[in-house]
Design a protein around this nucleic acid. Structure first.
Length: 605
RNA sequence: GGGGGUGUAGCUCAAUUGGUUAGAGCGCUGCCCUGUCACGGCAGAGGUUACGGGUUCGAGCCCCGCCGCUCCCGCCA
């Protein structure tokens, strides 16, 4: 044994014992005649003391030469710290180790950035952190994230096992199914000209596992998507992937509510109330302007379509006459918004095809007593319209009212974006504070099964083509596809889409109809891409459904960090490179020949 | 593919309208210091201002290009 205790273990009960600790030199305080060295391992840190009156000169000099992050092994006697020198900031702060022996296991060069100072380290350029990821991960904050991730993974496996699920691994060398996200391709040496694709998700395998009679499947599955990255997206990521047979939507809701209860209890010791609220897709858009609402923010959208149907303000009445709606949002306390903030919001609106963004600033009038609506458009409103606004939006001094008049979906989404922007501004101004331990879970249900692609003039699956329609809507599949609701559900927490899933189509004929008649995929293409699934379904496919939760996002929420890079040990940059290993890299000509590949790009460097 | 932000000492940042030898804190090196825990004191070293062009008597600052990182839009069944 190299050590007797870890660095977060010693307490007054250990006083008098000889102990050996191993770890990194966290910080060194050399008082000349006396040296303090905090030894750190992943559990914590302990102060060790080098007293020259008690030690050979040679040993003391070696201690004096130690630098931050050298790896050491120290042996000495635990003792009570002298009165008044306790350090209440660390759990081992009542004791210290009087060193008798020091072994330098390894020296460290001067560091590119500090590991011991959370204030400084959290501000260090991420480029540097990624290049020296092993140093970044030594920081206690990052080590904590890794630990939360591991604990939650284990809690998930235990919970799913208790519920009777089998963890089954599925291939990561799959084949291309071009419907969804862009895929990573892997050339196949043994079959010249053919390619594997890395799976976007184990979707098809998990459904086949249901046909195979597994009944309850789960997997912490690695998934791959070759799309542009974001703070919450990496090219390879992990899902808690789940599929069950002989179930309905309610069974999935109950299962996931139980799982998330267990996870929140494990990671944060928080008891999450169940069942979660449910919102239909339509209601989510109507009230929040987005299909993953952050209900902590308040500021719900109001509908003023009927109030402005006959308005003299043609932008509003015209939109209603064209079959659209008038929606408004009260950004409480934002009347002070700057011109550039209004500008930003207007740009948002314009990017969605609006001509501009109507607003009213509700401020004190010139006389200092009355409240005045300052707006270029308010002169067009009659008293009834003003009264409707005041009532539906509960207008008070200091408010900023924002409008969107457009087709329903567009109007909702514009204000949805602006609502989030306003919330950010209010947060920065300190007018909106949300406790970090508040978690608003909700299910969003009744999504439209299909969406229309104007450019390609065809319907496509909102979720994926295996999603079952709501049974009573099936007759409308061919007559009125827009109205068909899917048995699809999303789980949302604090405005983050944590996961989604659906009850699947298990009848081969319905699946064939969706592929060929609704999605208009040519039969031969259906056969080539999904033939084995349709075939499998002919041999007795049980009704089934499932869900997938974004594991990285889940951990990021639990760790209260905005970027999933902070909860992935070795993440990639926004361009998909790894700054530590310098991947992706070039390969030798022989490797290309083996793969029957020829490059058409100029070799870099 | 598009838009925004950013790049100055090892790290975090500053540098007035384009004007002297590009500064500070931390870190580092040396010396001093026996109760520190952000130890303290004295001294010192450390710069291709990401990179390549251009304008100018003069560029960290202005212009063009390019690269990295980052955020957002598109994209992510």
């Amino acid at each position: 044994m190299k050590r007797t205790q870890h660095c977060n273990e010693l307490r007054p009960a250990h006083i008098g014992q000889m102990v050996t600790l191993c770890g990194w030199v966290h910080s060194r305080r050399d008082l000349g005649g006396l040296i303090f060295i905090d030894v750190r391992d992943r559990e914590g840190r302990t102060q060790t003391v080098f007293d020259p009156s008690d030690l050979p000169k040679e040993l003391f000099e070696r201690a004096a030469a130690l630098r931050s992050e050298c790896v050491v092994r120290v042996t000495g006697k635990v003792r009570q710290r002298p009165a008044g020198t306790n350090n209440p900031k660390i759990p081992t702060g009542e004791v210290e180790v009087m060193v008798k022996e020091l072994e330098v296991l390894n020296v460290a060069d001067v560091l590119p950035f500090p590991v011991d100072d959370p204030e400084v380290a959290s501000k260090v350029n991420e480029e540097l952190r990624l290049k020296y990821r092993y140093l970044d991960l030594r920081r206690p904050e990052m080590a904590r994230n890794l630990r939360v991730r591991s604990k939650v993974a284990t809690a998930t496996r235990v919970f799913m096992d208790e519920q009777g699920f089998l963890e089954v691994e599925t291939p990561t060398l799959f084949k291309s199914t071009p419907e969804g996200a862009r895929e990573f391709l892997v050339p196949c040496r043994t079959n010249p000209g053919l390619f594997y694709a890395l799976p976007q998700s184990p979707q098809q395998f998990k459904q086949i596992l249901m046909v195979a009679g597994v009944e309850k499947y789960f997997q912490l599955a690695r998934c791959y998507r070759d799309e542009d990255l974001r703070a919450d997206r990496q090219p390879e990521f992990t899902q808690i992937d789940i599929e069950m047979s002989f179930i309905e939507r309610e069974d999935i809701y109950a299962l996931i509510e139980g799982l998330l209860q267990r996870v929140w209890k494990t990671a944060l010791n928080i008891d999450v109330p169940v069942p979660f609220k449910r919102l239909t897709f339509e209601e989510a858009l109507n009230r929040y302007g987005i299909d993953k609402p952050d209900t902590r923010l308040g500021m719900e959208l109001a509908d003023l379509t009927e109030d402005f149907r006959a308005s003299k303000f043609k932008v509003f009445s015209g939109a209603v006459a064209a079959g659209g709606v008038v929606k408004a949002l009260n950004a409480k306390g934002l009347a002070c918004a700057t011109q550039s903030q209004i500008e930003t919001m207007t740009e948002y609106a314009k990017s969605f095809g609006a001509k501009g963004l109507a607003y009213i600033k509700v401020e004190k009038g010139a006389d200092g007593a009355t409240v005045e609506w300052k707006s270029p458009i308010v002169k067009f409103f009659n008293d009834a319209e003003k009264a409707a606004l005041a009532k539906k939006l509960a207008i008070e001094e200091g408010d900023l009212i924002l409008f969107a008049a457009d087709q329903w979906l567009n109007a909702c989404e514009i204000l949805g974006k602006i609502r989030l922007y306003c919330a950010d501004v209010l947060k920065t101004q300190g007018k909106l504070t949300i406790p970090t331990d508040r978690f608003d879970f909700l299910w969003v249900v009744d999504f439209p099964l299909l969406s229309f692609d104007k450019e390609q003039n065809r319907w496509y699956s909102s979720h994926h083509p295996f999603t079952a329609p709501v049974a009573e809507d099936i007759p409308m599949l061919k007559t009125d596809p827009k109205k068909v609701r899917g048995q699809h559900y999303d789980i949302v927490v604090n405005g983050v889409e944590l996961g989604g899933g659906s009850i699947r189509i298990h009848q081969p004929d319905v699946q064939k109809t969706v592929f060929e008649e609704v999605l208009q995929i040519p039969p031969e293409m259906v056969k080539a891409r999904f033939g084995y699934m349709l075939e499998a379904f002919r041999f007795g496919a049980p009704p089934h459904g499932g869900i997938a939760l974004g594991f990285d996002r889940l951990i990021a929420i639990l760790c209260n960090t905005a970027s999933i890079r902070d909860v992935i040990a070795f993440p990639k940059t926004a361009k998909g490179t790894c700054l530590m290993t310098d991947s992706p890299g070039s390969v030798e000509p022989k490797q290309l020949r083996d793969l029957h590949l020829e490059l058409k790009v100029a070799k870099k460097e």
